[in-house]
Design a protein around this nucleic acid. Structure first.
Length: 255
DNA sequence: AATACGGGGAC
DNA sequence: GTCCCAGTATT
């Protein structure tokens, strides 16, 4: 849930989710439709599908317990380098890298004097982080860096006056320069395929039992005036496993 | 290495 | 409007 989604926004959904499905086996046994509905508007609903499938793999291959083995974690749907490291560090107290956007930003500023990290995690970043990770309390150290980035050393308005690292921060010493390389412009959401997918899923989560291309295009919203876009959204959702094509030609939430 | 993938809140 | 968010999988 936390992948590309702020903690404050995840928390209420996460609490309800864990109350309803306390264990991987509970989630694995739930119909996909209920999983998608419970995900609600958290965003990136394919994460819900992957989490559901990961729970089923955990039940089938790991006795219903989340594995601590790195390769086992990485083989789970939706679990990549960051999530695998976070589970190992925070659930199992195993020294591991959790190079999320927060940790990367803190280290980019404190060590490199750069306002923001660029591109993907590099080998140099991994090796540097390993080299400065303390032997004792490694996982608390990673959690501390993450928390510092999330609450103090934020992307937009860092609260350097309350930062425990301010006296040795290379970025502050350099006068807090702006990003060298401005981030790539993110595409407009309004009118996008993403919005079309979101609206289709919202209909199916709520009152619409099943729908087809005509149903989508009959909507009053301009997003669906584009037939090709509506088709892309439907086929994309289907290939992601978020909707199923029924025998009557209409789409519905999977089982 | 680029791109697709949500949606809400802050400014 | 634009940017950002405890990233991942695919091309």
């Amino acid at each position: 849930m936390l992948q590309q989604t702020p903690v404050a926004r995840v928390l209420p959904t996460w609490r309800a989710w864990m109350n309803r499905w306390p264990t991987p086996a509970d989630l694995a046994a739930s119909p996909t439709s209920e999983v998608i509905r419970a995900w609600d508007r958290l965003g990136y609903p394919r994460r819900a599908i992957r989490l559901h499938r990961a729970a089923q793999v955990i039940v089938a291959d790991h006795g219903g317990f989340v594995p601590s083995d790195l390769d086992a974690l990485l083989s789970l749907p939706g679990v990549g380098e960051y999530t695998a490291g976070a589970v190992r560090a925070f659930a199992f107290d195993i020294p591991a890298l959790t190079l999320d956007t927060n940790v990367r930003r803190v280290l980019a500023r404190y060590l490199q004097g750069q306002a923001l990290p660029t591109g993907q995690v590099t080998r140099a970043e991994r090796e540097l982080t390993w080299s400065i990770m303390p032997a004792d309390g490694a996982t608390k150290w990673m959690a501390g860096l993450m928390e510092l980035g999330a609450l103090v050393c934020t992307a937009k308005k860092p609260d350097c006056n309350h930062c425990p690292l301010v006296t040795n921060c290379a970025w502050v010493a350099a006068g807090s320069p702006p990003p060298v390389q401005p981030p790539r412009r993110q595409p407009q959401y309004v009118g996008s395929d993403r919005q079309a997918r979101g609206h289709i899923l919202a209909m199916l989560r709520n009152d619409v039992e099943a729908l087809d291309l005509n149903t989508v295009r009959a909507g009053s919203d301009y997003v669906w005036a584009d037939e090709a876009q509506a088709e892309r959204a439907l086929s994309g959702l289907a290939s992601d496993g978020l909707i199923n094509l029924r025998n009557d030609g209409k789409y519905c939430l999977p089982n």
